[in-house]
Amino acid sequence: MKVAITSKGVTLDSEVDPRFGRAPYIVVVDTETLEFEAVDNSSNVNAFKGAGIQAATTVCEKGAEVLMTGYCGPKAFATLEAGGVKVVDDVTGTIREAAELMKSGKVTYSTAANKEAHW
């Protein structure tokens, strides 16, 4: 299964970045093979508005089935939902740990945003 994880760095040992829209990288990992691609999200880090929406469209385009992150706001959540991407929030640790957690199936999918919208 392909899962997108917000990351502070470009390796499997990088730490999960709790921010979704403004995380420097989004690592897309195959939970079976641990093959991964680190997508540069830096253009979004300083986005004027709607960073979460932009990051969400990126996740959808990369074909991930699940997004793992710390916080996900309402606009990003709506965008992911439209793209059929499920969300797991409050994720911490390394990218590898998050991917293994996903593989183990011991995750709870969010039913709503867990962060207020930004203005």
Partner: peptide
């Protein structure tokens, strides 16, 4: 510039 539109699959938010 303000990300007011998102094209996802067959939807435009």
């Amino acid at each position: 510039r303000f990300n007011a539109l998102a094209v996802v699959g067959k939807q435009v938010l």
